[in-house]
Amino acid sequence: MKQSLTATAIALTLAFSAFSPAQAGPAEDLTAFQDHFKTAFKDVPFENFKDGAYALDEKLKAQWEEMEEFPPYEPDIDAGKKIWETAFKDGKTYADCMGDIKSIRTKYPYYDADKDTIMTAESALNDCKKAGDGEGFTDKEGKPLLNKGKIAQLMAYIAMENRGGKIAVATPEGKAVDWYEKGKTFYYAKRGQLNMSCADCHTSNAGKMIRADLLSPALGHVTHWPTYRSADGEITTLHNRFMGCNTMVRAASFKPQGDEYKALEYFLTYMSNGQEWNGPGSRK
């Protein structure tokens, strides 16, 4: 494990050196990461990156705003509110374990030193449900379902209640840096049969067209989840998007709320510090 972390760290330094000086810590990475997009998209106001590809193209943005007039995720917010208010088998509710609903979005993701893991909002909700119901979010067959369905609906309600807050992930320190590095490595490593990294599409080529799709900048990637995608016809989580992008390059995808994607979410959310939380979102 240690050895492989070292290997990936070296690999990362090499892969990353094209973008920023080696030896940079998280805070320096953050500045370099955001500066890249500020420079590449001089005309895009910083606060607009939360709108993804729509921040880069007026015409697409107009179509999207039209779609947002009758938000496709509205039924999911209603369904999520019911889930939030329904008591568990033990009589407790989400509020009992998550606290004030308005405090949730800005709290996650964070490094939990006791558990030595990244706590995401979804993993915390799943833990609550496990404690109260004896089982977490599952599909009809009883298998964990953490990238869509009820957990996404619950998150849609929570995100709506938390709109307008700013992303403010604390600068990783101590053992949190290992998780940060794991996420950063994931972001910059080439993978899959098509041999592409997240950065290839969402840093180096953000703003370019891949076939008919305008590639969104990674800055702002985490702001608007869960998201209703017309292509999917349902609301899904950030980790579902990670799975989709991994599959696209013919790489194996990982489990939603597994360590790989939690680390990636942690890295990407820190990189988006200062952006506004504006979930739930809609995309074509």
Binding site: A11, A15, Y188, A189, K190, R191, N195, A251, A252
Partner: peptide
């Protein structure tokens, strides 16, 4: 992942 160095270059290949 298995990280393989393809060359001494910056290219990194990660196969799942």
């Amino acid at each position: 992942f298995r990280i393989l160095f393809i060359s001494a270059s910056v290219s990194v290949l990660a196969l799942s």
